[in-house]
Simulated scan of single mutants.
Amino acid sequence: MKTLLVTISKGGVGKTMCTCQLARHARSLGLRVLVIDFDDQVNASNALERKYTENDVVATRLGQTATELLLRYSETDLGSIPEFALVAGDGALVREFVEFARTTDPGQVHSRMYMAQANFAAFLGDIAPHFDLCIIDSPPAADIRISVSLMEGDAVLSPIQLSQECIEGIAETLSGQRGILRIKASTNPELQFLGFLPNMVESTPKQREALREIADNVGEFLLRNENEELVFLPRRAAFADAQEKGTALANLAKTNTAAREAWAITKPIFTLILERLGLTPKLRQLDASRKIQKIESQALGVNPDDVLGATADEGAGNESVASRS
């Protein structure tokens, strides 16, 4: 299982949208996907539990919430493990960690932080055999939720907006007390920073100037494709529409021209991210398996749709590991 943290020290930049849309896309390709919602606003949890059409796959909650996972993790409390799963946010993480640290002596705070890291590491170790990809939606604040994710994760993606406030947050994200580079140097040398992904990009002089400033200062940390070209997500209402409806942008694109244009830009970026995470061999294996099943079904005179179910674009089902075995 590859664990990807989506984070930056700034709110409202599209972290949750990237988390949810990447998760839905990965699941549609056949990957077993887990999403952890570490943001007290629980927007990712809400979006992934909505369903717009019959082709949309709803994430199924595991038996423990994000707060319970960090404070009192128990493998026996997780329940059955579906192929598209959610550790839901419960709005209590700030109270249990941030406010706790403000009102409690350092010894108890340190003990709780250590416990949270140990619980999270144990959880990831136990759950890893059941999933191919785990995506963590983070809060804008740099606290224990970021620390444990960086210390135990495999990779980081940082959506950014081309604004002065976000530019100022880049330095904190990279080199702050709980910065990516600091954690990588001190605790998790295998941590991979995929890069900053400009989001909600518009073709205006102000945004072009902001992009030039970012490129001059942290150009080596911008997400680029195999041709070393900068990639970005444009400002499109279709992203918010897909999130609000609880559907994959690819599904919305089937009937919506604006969504189709947005998806044409987004799909190669998601493909790039999955490739950088090392999931291409798994995707090829899944694709080959689907092709073999289709050929065998056609040879037997069986309707492939009856055997394969939804197509890769429409999304795979929510079959549990237990039912597969």
Rank of each mutant, 00 (worst) to 15 (best):
L223E: 10
A66L: 02
Y73C: 02
E152F: 03
A101W: 03
M113T: 07
L233A: 09
R208W: 07
A121T: 09
R24F: 08
G309Q: 12
N217V: 05
P106T: 06
D56A: 11
E54M: 08
E190P: 03
S297F: 02
Q161M: 14
T266K: 04
V57C: 11
D143F: 15
V42W: 00
A101P: 02
N318T: 15
C134Y: 09
T7A: 14
A141D: 13
K184R: 12
E165H: 02
I183A: 02
E168C: 01
T204A: 00
D39K: 04
G219C: 06
L181M: 07
F193L: 12
D132I: 10
G107I: 08
I167F: 15
L233M: 15
R102T: 14
P129W: 07
V218L: 06
S138F: 06
D40W: 08
Q108V: 05
C134A: 15
E314L: 08
M113G: 06
V231D: 13
N43A: 05
G79A: 07
V156T: 08
V58K: 12
M17S: 15
A88Y: 05
G219E: 14
S147H: 06
L181W: 03
S9H: 13
I265S: 05
N119C: 09
T204E: 04
L31E: 05
S203N: 04
N199H: 11
V6W: 04
F131I: 13
A101K: 05
G12I: 08
G14T: 11
G11Y: 11
G79L: 06
D154W: 11
I146L: 14
G63N: 03
L93R: 00
E172R: 05
P189T: 13
G315Y: 01
N43V: 03
E202R: 07
A26N: 10
T247F: 00
L62C: 04
G14E: 06
N303G: 01
F239C: 00
L249Q: 10
S297N: 01
A155G: 11
V307H: 05
L174A: 04
L93T: 08
L78G: 01
E296M: 03
Q164G: 04
V94Y: 13
S175Y: 04
A237V: 09
H130T: 13
A171T: 12
F196W: 03
Q64G: 02
F123G: 00
R24S: 10
V87N: 00
D306Q: 12
F239W: 12
R284Y: 14
E213R: 12
L191S: 08
A248N: 13
D39G: 02
P139C: 12
Q243R: 01
A59I: 08
Q108S: 14
C166K: 00
R145M: 13
V148C: 07
L22K: 09
S163I: 01
E229P: 04
V35H: 01
A250N: 07
E314G: 02
Q108K: 15
T271S: 13
V148F: 12
I167N: 02
Q285F: 09
I144T: 02
E244G: 00
L133R: 09
E49N: 10
L69R: 00
T103I: 10
D313G: 02
L233G: 07
A155Q: 08
